[in-house]
Amino acid sequence: MKIAVCIKRVPEMDVTFKIAPTGKAVDETGLKWDMSDFDGYAVEAALQLTEKAGTGEVHVISLGPDVVQETLRKALSMGVAKAVQLKCDTVPFDAYAIGTALAAELKDGGYDLIMFGKMSIDGANGVTQFVVAELLGLPLVHACSKLEIADGKGSARREIEGGGELVSFALPAIVSIDEGIARPRYPSLKGIMAAKRKPLEVRPAQLGEVRLTIETMELPPPRAAGRIIGEGAAAVPELVALLQNEAKVL
């Protein structure tokens, strides 16, 4: 079984972001970067599938400038066999442009399964896998929380409102991974050392036409200061009045 996982390098999210002077992107100074969370689950799920099958290998693909090699190396240190960087100076915002480049790489790769995180945690579009599925003409199961492959067929569970949905599909196929499937393994030093010797191929990204761009980016407005009305039962009538007339929630 041959699996490709498309991964993205994203900033560490639990920081206070600033907007860059251009007003169209976040200020990247001081940010730490890592593999997008959902992509990490996808890599782990892919590795577990090949380990369980006892055969096959996992490749990872990432699009972007040379810094994405760091993210690719991390996947290699987790146990992935080969990494491919689709090189471009900046990562476009348009999933169509990205998906076109990925599809071109994946088309003749002979993959049984192509995996994505259900979305990148920075862009939060969750569209790229749909573009790739369309361009390659493959079935897509979006946001899987469980995944099994047996006898050339796959089955997956999707979490939906109030329950689960079990989907079966034929290979080759594309799946995108939700959380809860598998916690990414912590690379061992042995894995990190081995990753240095594994192949990391660099090819120019054959980006599609960029039709979407970010015009402007802004931070949420600062929250207005709270107001203390009073204390105890005496404050209740005024609170009720304010909730009715000002907040209009009652």
């Binding site: 560490e12 730490k32 890592d34 916690r183 393994r185 912590y186 690379p187 061992s188 030093l189 042995k190 894995g191």
Partner: peptide, 22 residues
């Protein structure tokens, strides 16, 4: 356990990750 086998209590993973990232 950690370097060769990547085996350790799950609860120390956040500490490793925080040291790496933060």
């Amino acid at each position: 356990l950690v370097l060769t086998e990547s085996r350790f209590p799950e609860e120390i993973l956040p500490a490793f990750e925080a040291m790496e990232r933060n």
